[in-house]
Design a protein around this nucleic acid. Structure first.
Length: 642
DNA sequence: CGCATGGTAAACAGTT
DNA sequence: GAACTGTTTACCATGC
């Protein structure tokens, strides 16, 4: 009854080791800060407090108040100069790495998305505090810097009213250049950080925007704020800069470079949040932005990145909204359709299964393998209520029978499939695909397009939580299918036998299924844009294999794209018949199909001893790299939980 | 109702 | 001999 997907999920081989990551961030942040706690800013001495100085102070004060407001709003005790280190002067480079602050709304969104575990949230909070501290320190730094500027200005003025305009401008420009350099560095670091974050599963770029760069997600408005601060500082006093000041800032920036990896971690975590609430950027500081744009166009790259980021954020939000909508629709749909005549013996199980997976991901924060992509519910093929049945219901009710027609009603997008993949990985929901399809997929995903029986088993258990129990039953079914279907070809190998797929046979096989129901086909085609002709579908599936997110992850999880394609094919199986026959059923998905010398199992010719497969054998054979098969050694324990 | 398809169970033989 | 692999048959459910 208790969902045991928890432990199983944890044991999932493809787990992303992001658990320790967050902790490390914190550590590194701390250590970094300590390490960096060196330079006192030039001089705290303030000579004569002239009017300009006061103005600067006021400007700084405004900025500081703004930051304090943020702190208060975010419900965090203003860290003052608490814990970390008392009164250190944090180099600009470091302080600037971490301007992002999570607003309550952002936090809310994060929570809603169930993306982060409590531990991660805690880390975030702590880092948030650290960020604020650093922001304050940044303020301090600028304050002192300004003071020194004032001092020097006074000195200059006293020295003599010289034509200083050009010189001052030049100096100011230099200063700003340094500033912008720092910004750029920060951005780069954030990008790096985003990447690592992604790898750790803390951040996910939805596959919906494959084209978008994942880089500048984080450049919230805070950098702009810093810019503004800078502006205020410099505008009130156009340019009283001295070489020494320049020098200091440049040094700091260089420091930033050397310590890039560490500080980036600090800002990193924040990025996703900033991204989740991207609209805050323009909204939050409209005036500043205008100011900024009018007078002080940022570095082109910075602004461009800013824009890109905003777009990314918006797209992400859009995607999120869409997904939520879809989920909602699904839920309601399930409830409505649950009255379907024969269908589900226990329609409620549909809901329970969904909630199960959801709660599972919620309730097991320690099971970090839940990546942000982890869906809470299958989006694609399962939309038809009846086919979603929990394992328990399976046990109670007995075998479920699915028809392909069920699947025909469902549009599939690559994102959906990928998400569903995650879903089936973690939720013990029976995948709405036939054994034959799954077997085929398993084989096609393998590097050599061939698998041993045991490897097929492992693929099943790895990819579907459902197949982590009742091994005897489904393994028997797998064997049964392998033997039964012509499309599966057994190839003798040096180390045993492997199974391959005869794509031609596989394609041939399916059209029959609905051959008698052209109306259905038509209906499908008309109603679902996703269900494109075979070629298009295949192309799409090919494209899916290069979805940015999953290609990066493809090292560890090469299956998503292929699985998606296979599922899609299964769904499109009928269509291909109507449209383009399988004129060229060798979709070019794999070299295998290109040559498909495979012999059909029951072919009258020579079932066994032909040479066709041998060519495969030669290419095959050496693929011990399928190590993740080991993930789910058959555990007889799972055989029968009851 | 018959047929096709798919899932499950089981018997059986061969191999490791 | 046990376990695994592979084949085959039977039965049932479902959809058309």
């Amino acid at each position: 009854m208790m969902q045991e997907s928890g432990p199983e999920t944890k044991s999932n081989g493809s787990a992303i080791p992001n658990g320790a990551g967050s902790g490390n961030h914190l550590l590194e942040c701390g250590s970094l800060r300590e390490g960096r706690a060196n330079g006192e800013t030039p001089s705290g001495e303030i000579g004569a407090a002239d009017l300009a100085h006061i103005q600067q102070q006021q400007a700084l004060q405004v900025a500081r108040q703004l930051l304090l407001q943020q702190q208060q709003v975010s419900g965090l005790k203003s860290p003052k100069r608490n814990d970390k280190q008392p009164a250190l002067q944090v180099p600009v480079s470091v302080a600037m790495m971490t301007p992002q602050v999570i607003t309550p709304q952002q936090m809310q969104q994060i929570l809603q998305q169930q993306v982060l575990t409590p531990q991660q949230l805690q880390v975030l909070l702590q880092q948030q505090q650290a960020l604020m501290l650093q922001q304050q320190q940044l303020q301090e730094f600028y304050k002192k810097q300004q003071e020194q500027l004032q001092l020097q200005l006074l000195q200059q003025q006293h020295a003599g009213k010289q034509p200083k305009e050009p010189q001052q401008q030049q100096v100011a420009a230099t200063q700003q250049l340094a500033f912008q350099q720092q910004l750029l560095q920060m951005q780069q670091l954030q990008q790096q950080h985003l990447l690592s974050l992604q790898r750790q599963g803390l951040l996910t770029i939805q596959p919906g925007q494959p084209g978008l760069p994942l880089q500048p997600i984080a450049q919230g408005m805070i950098p702009a704020e810093l810019q503004q601060l800078w502006k205020e500082v410099t505008s009130s006093h156009p340019a009283e800069e001295t070489p020494s000041n320049n020098h200091s800032s440049l040094d700091l920036s260089s420091t930033c470079v050397t310590t890039s990896s560490a500080p980036s971690k600090t800002s990193l975590i924040m990025n996703p949040h900033a991204s989740t609430n991207g609209q805050l950027a323009p909204v939050h500081t409209p005036k500043r932005e205008r100011h900024l744009n009018n007078e002080h166009a940022l570095d082109d790259r910075s602004t461009a990145q800013c824009r890109v980021q905003m777009q990314v954020v918006q797209q992400l939000e859009l995607q999120l909204a869409k997904d939520k909508e879809r989920l909602q629709a699904m839920m309601t749909h399930l409830h409505v359709k649950s009255t379907e005549p024969k269908a589900t013996p226990q329609p409620l199980n549909l809901v329970s299964s969904v909630t199960l997976s959801k709660t599972a991901s919620e309730a097991s924060p320690q099971s970090l393998p839940h990546t942000p992509t982890t869906p809470t519910t299958p989006i694609t093929p399962v939309t038809q209520g009846p086919s979603v049945i929990t394992t328990t219901s399976m046990h109670n009710v007995g075998p479920i029978r699915r028809r392909y027609s069920d699947k025909y009603n469902v549009p599939i997008s690559s994102a959906d499939i990928a998400q569903n993949q995650e879903f089936y990985k973690n939720a013990e929901v029976r995948p709405p695909f036939t054994y034959a399809s799954l077997i085929r997929q398993a084989i096609l995903e393998s590097p050599e397009k061939q698998l041993t029986l045991n490897e097929i088993y492992n693929w099943f258990t790895r990819m579907f939580a459902y197949f982590r129990r009742n091994a005897a039953t489904w393994k028997n079914a797998v064997r049964h299918n392998l033997s039964l279907h012509k499309c599966f070809v057994r190839v003798e190998n040096v180390k045993g036998a492997v199974w391959t797929v005869d794509e031609v046979e596989f394609q041939k096989r399916r059209p029959q299924k609905i051959s008698g129901n052209p109306s259905l086909i038509k209906n499908i085609q008309s109603s679902h844009a996703y269900c494109t002709p075979l070629n298009a579908a295949l192309q799409a599936s090919m494209a899916e294999n290069s979805i940015p997110l999953y290609t990066t992850a493809s090292m560890g999880n090469p299956t998503l794209g292929n699985l998606a394609s296979a599922m899609r094919e299964e769904l499109n199986g009928a269509m291909e018949h109507t449209n383009s026959n399988e004129s060229d059923s060798s979709p070019g998905r794999s070299p295998m199909q290109a040559m498909h010398p495979v012999h059909v199992k029951e072919e009258p010719l020579d079932p066994d001893e032909n040479e066709g497969p041998l060519s495969l054998v030669t290419t095959a054979n050496h693929s011990p790299d399928f190590d993740h098969d080991r993930d789910y050694e058959d555990e007889p324990v799972n055989e029968d939980m009851e």
